[in-house]
Simulated scan of single mutants.
Amino acid sequence: MGCGGDRHVDLCFSGSYPLMAVSNAVNGPMRGSLTVQCRYEPGWETYKKWWCRGANWDNCRILVKTNGSGEKEKVNQVSIQDNQKMNMFTVTMEELRWNDADTYWCGIEKSGTDLGVKVKVTIDPVTMQCHYSPEWETYVRSWCPDADLSSCTIVVQTAGSELKKNLVSINQKMHTFSMTIWGE
């Protein structure tokens, strides 16, 4: 729960709290998507729900907000939808990038004080494997992120066992090499 601050002030009391994240730590794959679900007690259905980024509750940046209905709202790669019958709203982050890893907040806007709970988002690296036959063992392995092989730029290549470059690693073992994308 967030506590204190100027813009969003959380009540911070012991006992039941009207808002909770289904999970306070969520992860998603690089270039993939993740979903966060936040539940609230009956009575908060028509209030606006929001998703905010930043470790500090008092100055986090609201990325997307509902309009008080069950309609889906989307800003850039982030969407939010409130299921008022289930007393739950869902945030989806798409096309995840390495720098999307951060502290976020599920929130409910109300007069005087907003409600909010912290959610930690982490991004998982993606690994892809390529297999080849023994006659190619002495050739250089390379990784190119573009679909068009004739015009793409090689990001990393190796004739040895492992090389890291530009947040991409390539690892070669017998008849297999794998690329791990750690960042953009």
Rank of each mutant, 00 (worst) to 15 (best):
T103V: 15
Y139N: 06
V140T: 14
N99Q: 07
Y132T: 11
A159Q: 07
S133Q: 14
S142P: 01
T138D: 13
P134G: 09
P145S: 06
V121I: 13
E162A: 14
D100K: 02
S150M: 15
S142L: 09
Q129Y: 12
Q129M: 12
I123P: 00
W98R: 11
S161E: 09
T138V: 11
A101P: 02
R97V: 06
P134A: 14
S111C: 06
S133R: 13
I154F: 00
V156G: 00
A101R: 05
W105D: 08
S133A: 14
T153P: 10
T153I: 12
V156D: 00
R97C: 04
S111T: 13
G107Q: 04
S142Q: 08
S161D: 08
R97Q: 09
E137F: 08
D100H: 07
K118F: 03
A159G: 08
S142I: 04
W143K: 00
N99T: 06
C106T: 02
W143Y: 15
K164E: 14
G107V: 04
Q157E: 02
G107F: 03
V140R: 13
H131R: 13
A147G: 14
Q157R: 01
K118Y: 04
Y104A: 03
D100Y: 07
T127H: 00
P145A: 08
I154C: 02
D102N: 13
E135Y: 11
